[in-house]
């Protein structure tokens, strides 16, 4: 199956201690690797206020996983998140297409800059030639 890049963001209930959160994150990581996903990055975004109540909690710990995985592995990770009790909400977003688009734009920009810097150099030469021709 094709490997794709995904971002899994999930919210853990706020009444957990830091150690418990670390433990949960490491178990999730191991679940992901067992399912065949490669964990590229783990980012703890800290405690944030939720925009609306989720299971009667008004804030939560945000954790972001960046995975390189296929659909099956993502399905398994999502199932684990759904089952685990302290996780109150999660969202999976596929980012490889977006990344591809951004890279393309970046490349386009860099070539444009090169062209604009290259153009002024040959431009003055015809002007320099033209007066000489009239004279």
């Amino acid at each position: 199956m094709q490997q794709r890049t995904y971002e899994v963001m999930f919210i853990v209930r706020p009444d957990l201690v830091d150690e418990e959160i670390d433990k949960l994150v490491s178990t999730m990581e191991s679940h992901a690797t067992n399912a065949g996903a490669v964990v590229k990055n783990i980012e703890k975004m800290g405690k944030r206020r939720l925009a609306y109540l989720v299971r009667r909690f008004s804030d939560g710990f945000y954790i972001l996983l960046t995975l390189e995985a296929d659909g099956k592995a993502i399905h398994e990770v999502e199932r684990r998140l759904r089952v685990s009790e302290p996780v109150i909400k999660f969202l999976t977003v596929r980012i490889d297409e977006e990344q591809k688009r951004l890279d393309k734009i970046k490349q386009l920009r860099s070539t444009k800059v090169k062209r604009s810097t290259a153009e002024p150099a040959p431009a003055p030469t015809p002007e320099a030639v033209a007066p000489a021709a009239t004279a």
Binding site: R48, L50, A51, Y52
Partner: peptide
């Protein structure tokens, strides 16, 4: 997407 992960509200109360 931000609404779904409670970063933005669906409807502010």
């Amino acid at each position: 997407q931000a609404r779904n992960i409670a970063l933005l509200p669906f409807a502010a109360r």
